[in-house]
Nucleic acid binder design. Structure first.
Lengths: 229, 229
DNA sequence: CGCCGTATTGAGCGCTCTCAAGCTAGGTGG
DNA sequence: CCACCTAGCTTGAGAGCGCTCAATACGGCG
């Protein structure tokens, strides 16, 4: 039921694999992972309406999180891909601040926060790991505040290349989201993303073919990105 | 040495006050707070150079965190005021990603992360609180991604009014930082902040007198802010 | 009292937006 | 099998918001 091999690279794996023995591991999984479910493309992740209860782990696929502003416009807050954990931002307020929609068919593990807290209990190693995981989350969006459009898109592409299943030394990958969504996330219009892709292509920084991206000149792209962290 | 009354509203207070009895509390403080020190205005907070070791709590005053990009330009990442905890973002990478500078004379409590982790140990209540605290940190910058200049500044002013010591139902406070710094943080120029202050003043949303701000029409300001969270 | 950092205000420019028109690719049905 | 259909992408033209540069005013601090 739970394929251990597809879990090895998951951020949440340490919390599932608290026991060395696999049989015990499976037992633990059943206590931490409340359920697994699969959603098709463009479906809303069903969060409990009233209160925060669960964390969610992307087992495969990808989602975007977003708000709807008072003019009805979507405002994308983040993307989550295979092995990443969603829901930390909901802990403090005790409710889900964001909606989430799948970008493609997506398998999700639902983690009971209460069971998760129980698991932490006196396991100091897991305590450290969760602090590290949430700390990492604090730095995910760092580049969103960079000034120029080129800079943000360069950062975004490098970020994606590191987080998505990639071939050729992590330099080739498929965009899981539309130009419009990228623009929304980076506070640019979809048209601007198109134009920047064309410009990057002309300058031989990347190749673009529909959704397929290949980073051709990582050094130059990093210069544009002005990566600090 | 440690004035308990000035600590009551501190985010970190639960971790200092783990014992009901005050004498025991003082004992605990000594094990959690490694040292306290005071910095004058515009001084750099002395982080350990090589590796992450400590969290820092602002006991009084205020600081800004920032990066320097490869053109030497400052990029402000956040402001921290009395009772707020600094350093969570450094846990994952094991080093300080940001510099920090005081905005005014500032008292700081230095918390040994190792001692802090030890304190968490088997105290499940503290474990929950630290997750909540870090979760809260994930939502602090939410409004930075809003689109228009007016929107971001309105959010910023409301945010400040809730975080700073304020009079008159939290509607009057003193800006601890320059217009330039506000602009840098909100990805606007200092001149634009000036112009927006003037515009807000004309529209009777706020009053501005040097550093003193008073929110005159919170409802309208919130409409502009388009507060969702 | 004079100095220097900070704030205000104006003029002109440029990046990114919006609006709009084609284009492409993939899916559907006859 | 092919024509159509639709959503997403590309590209162009014009407009507007916020930037830069610059001049002036203010105010805290020595």
């Amino acid at each position: 039921m739970y394929k251990i091999d597809s879990c090895q690279n998951c951020d949440f794996f340490p919390f599932c694999a608290t026991e060395a023995s696999q049989s015990l591991w499976l037992k633990k999984v059943n206590s931490v992972v409340k359920q697994q479910f699969t959603l098709k493309k463009k479906q809303i992740v069903p969060f409990p309406q009233k209160a925060f209860q669960n964390l969610y782990v992307i087992k495969s696929g990808g989602i975007k999180t977003y708000e709807i502003d008072n003019q009805g416009k979507e405002l994308i807050r983040g993307f989550y891909f295979t092995g990443e954990v969603l829901g930390f931002e909901a802990i403090a307020k005790g409710r889900y601040l964001l909606k989430a929609m799948t970008l493609s068919q997506t398998e999700i593990c639902e983690i009971s926060y209460q069971h998760f807290i129980d698991l932490l209990g006196s396991n100091t190693s897991l305590q450290k790991q969760i602090l590290s995981l949430m700390s990492k989350q604090l730095t995910v969006n760092f580049y969103l505040n960079y000034i120029t459009a080129e800079q943000r898109l360069a950062c975004f592409l490098i970020d994606l290349s590191l987080r998505l299943p990639a071939k050729n030394k992590c330099k080739e990958f498929f965009l899981p989201m539309s130009r419009q969504d990228i623009g929304n996330y980076l506070k640019l219009s979809g048209e601007t993303i198109s134009r920047l892709f064309t410009r990057f292509k002309k300058n031989k920084l990347i190749s673009v073919e529909q959704k397929k991206i290949q980073i051709l000149n990582l050094e130059q792209l990093q210069l544009i990105a002005d990566q600090i962290t």
